[in-house]
Simulated assay, not measured.
Amino acid sequence: MSIPPATDGLPLQSAQCPLCGGANACGMVRSGGAEEPCWCEQETFSPALLARLPEARRGRACVCLRCVKSQ
């Protein structure tokens, strides 16, 4: 399951993982938009991991690879 992008037109909030606060290496944050695809588009996120995300951060900040791999 992938994280659906925010559709309300608001920008991504952070280059920090919403779970651990570490750097998430988000390609969209680095490029300032959708010009650079993000590594997370190729990952699978478990429903349990997605449930841990604060509602306000869903679709706005990538979970870091460390948190994805520890799910």
Rank of each mutant, 00 (worst) to 15 (best):
residue 20 C to V: 04
residue 44 T to S: 10
residue 62 C to M: 03
residue 55 E to H: 10
residue 48 A to W: 11
residue 34 A to R: 13
residue 7 T to F: 00
residue 58 R to S: 06
residue 33 G to E: 06
residue 62 C to S: 05
residue 21 G to S: 00
residue 23 A to S: 15
residue 17 C to E: 08
residue 65 L to E: 15
residue 51 A to T: 02
residue 67 C to N: 09
residue 29 V to G: 06
residue 27 G to Y: 03
residue 22 G to L: 03
residue 46 S to C: 11
residue 56 A to K: 13
residue 34 A to S: 13
residue 48 A to H: 12
residue 59 G to M: 03
residue 61 A to H: 05
residue 51 A to Y: 01
residue 60 R to G: 07
residue 1 M to T: 09
residue 64 C to E: 12
residue 11 P to L: 13
residue 71 Q to K: 11
residue 50 L to Y: 02
residue 71 Q to A: 15
residue 49 L to Q: 14
residue 55 E to L: 12
residue 25 A to G: 04
residue 68 V to T: 11
residue 17 C to A: 08
residue 5 P to T: 15
residue 55 E to F: 06
residue 23 A to K: 09
residue 30 R to Q: 14
residue 44 T to K: 07
residue 48 A to E: 12
residue 20 C to Y: 00
residue 20 C to H: 00
residue 15 A to M: 15
residue 21 G to T: 05
residue 9 G to F: 04
residue 36 E to L: 11
residue 24 N to V: 04
residue 13 Q to N: 09
residue 43 E to Y: 03
residue 49 L to C: 14
residue 41 E to T: 04
residue 19 L to S: 13
residue 34 A to L: 15
residue 30 R to P: 13
residue 41 E to D: 07
residue 10 L to D: 09
residue 71 Q to H: 11
residue 12 L to P: 04
residue 27 G to W: 00
residue 41 E to P: 01
residue 26 C to S: 00
residue 62 C to L: 04
residue 11 P to Y: 08
residue 27 G to C: 01
residue 15 A to I: 12
residue 45 F to K: 06
residue 3 I to P: 06
residue 57 R to A: 13
residue 16 Q to P: 13
residue 42 Q to T: 05
residue 48 A to V: 10
residue 23 A to C: 10
residue 23 A to P: 12
residue 49 L to S: 12
residue 52 R to G: 12
residue 34 A to F: 15
residue 27 G to L: 00
residue 41 E to K: 00
residue 60 R to E: 15
